[in-house]
Amino acid sequence: MRDFYGTTLANGFMLGTAQYPSPAILAEAFRRSGASVATVSLRRESGQDRAGQDFWNLIRDLGVHILPNTAGCHSVKEAVTTAHMAREVFDTPWIKLEVIGEEDTLQPDVFGLVEAARILTEDGFQVFPYTTEDLVVADRLLDAGCEVLMPWGSPIGSGLGLNNIFGLRALRAHFPDVPLVIDAGLGLPSQATTAMELGYDAILLNTAVAKAGDPAAMAEAFALALKAGKLAQSADPMEPRDMAAPSTPVIGKAFLE
């Protein structure tokens, strides 16, 4: 498995910590998911006086890697400030960088993203940028110092799955050595399987689990799906073809010419 800034993860499951009915259900979902990374967003207001401490302690107690994010930031300045706060609170150089460009689709502002990634990388952060499947932007992010890319599957919280399989496959093919994470838009475990079959290294999701009627069961379903996709990918899948290829021998059957 490709490593993330020198850290090898037990699996490619990154799970968000927002929107659960309660912290107890959140903890149970993590237990059943076996996720190796927890993402956590920092509201600037609670960062200032460390008011979210009780909640953050609960997240720390999950015993997994913590990936703080800059969710909801709309400008480079906001994202950079939030990243600094997160580094102080969680004592990690990791930061999932979100610079939102459009309110309805929560599409990343890729120009601001590249700029913020450069600023943060120069400051010693290890940046996980939330981006699109655009190859040129991906290239610029790598130039800016990112060693991981996190393209969206579809808009955040939409549950639409992988909207542009062709683009995601091209991204994988263009950057065979860069760890790639599908971030956002997954709604069903089968979509996570597809992501892993495409050769992606990890998936990151939140809403699909947190807003399921039974979050813990859905977390486990995603874990199984992830495992299936990963195993399938490593098993060297067959090539699709246009015509049927009989799976049973035809010798001995009568041919009519």
Binding site: R43, E45, S46, D49, A51, G52, Q53, D54, F55
Partner: peptide, 11 residues
Amino acid sequence: MVEGRAGRHVT
């Protein structure tokens, strides 16, 4: 609903 007893300031 904001996790954390964030004082009495309103955002």
